[in-house]
Amino acid sequence: MTQFDRTELTLFAALPVLVLLSVLLPSWIVNYIQVSLGTGMVALGVMIQMRAGLVSFGQGLYFCIGGYAAGLAGKYFGITDLFALLGLGVVVALVTSVALGFLLRRYREIFYAMLSLAVSMILYGLLSSTEELGSTDGFNLPVPTYLFFAPEGETARLTLFAITATIVILSAVVLNRLLRSSLGLVNEAIRENELRVEYLGTSAHMAVHMTYVVAAVVSSMGGVLWALALGHVDPEMTNWTTSGSFVFIVILAGTGSIIAPLIGTFLLEILRVYAVELSPNTWQMILGSVMLLTIIFLPKGLWSLVQKTSPRKRFDPDTGDAVAKGV
């Protein structure tokens, strides 16, 4: 397991490139890359669940938990250290997801989607109606510091970007390992046929629970990083539309590789920006049409464009053909 596969090598190679780009590109594009890295983490969380056939329509829950944990710690305890905030976000997400996992691991398919949605909307309702937590307006976050390093201005922007990129890349590598580990393989088996997995003596519930927790942790990290980049959190983070957009990113990008959701997030963001610029009044129509065309012509997501050239065909993680699922 010490050997790096192509995906991991690509990821490692992408890190210096990203950092280089952050200096070279105009800062508004870097900003979109940065927010995309944050939301891309959540998309990763959605994707690893989707590998097990589980579609979470409520991943915004952990995105929001991460953002709010960091925000509240900054607001009430004056914590500004990025690593402390990140740790806090992860701990809160961990505790919540372990508890909720006992409920959610019993569900599959659309019921998993709807129950995860319900839970995230309960948080949305609670946050929106609590004035102490800023209600729907949310509140602002402090500028992060790094251990004993407290940069300002341009340095602060670049430091945050570099650290965000590093964390995202490292997490992606770890997740890639996870997909290749026995848990990842069991997940794919669960998607194909859960009953057989149980017959073979593995607990599907356990695997789903663990995947759920991992996805929650990754998403909360994304939430912390995104919130720090933006400097503001509000309950929209856990609204169903936000969660829905993560699912759409993953489906559009494809689940073929851990890299796909990260790039998909950025591309979708740029697409939206240009749709708004092109036609501020009917940009949704452009977005919808592009989505539709992608689904029709690239049913396995954008990643299939890249994958076609790849010789590795031993196990193709995309299902695509649902007919075989026995509806």
Binding site: I29, Y32, G231, S245, R272
Partner: peptide, 20 residues
């Protein structure tokens, strides 16, 4: 330059307005 406020990335959109 007209921009839709209905966006999840308001700050990034703002930055784009300013810089691009």
């Amino acid at each position: 330059v007209y921009v839709d406020e209905n966006s999840k990335q308001k700050n990034a959109d703002f930055q784009k307005l300013v810089e691009k």
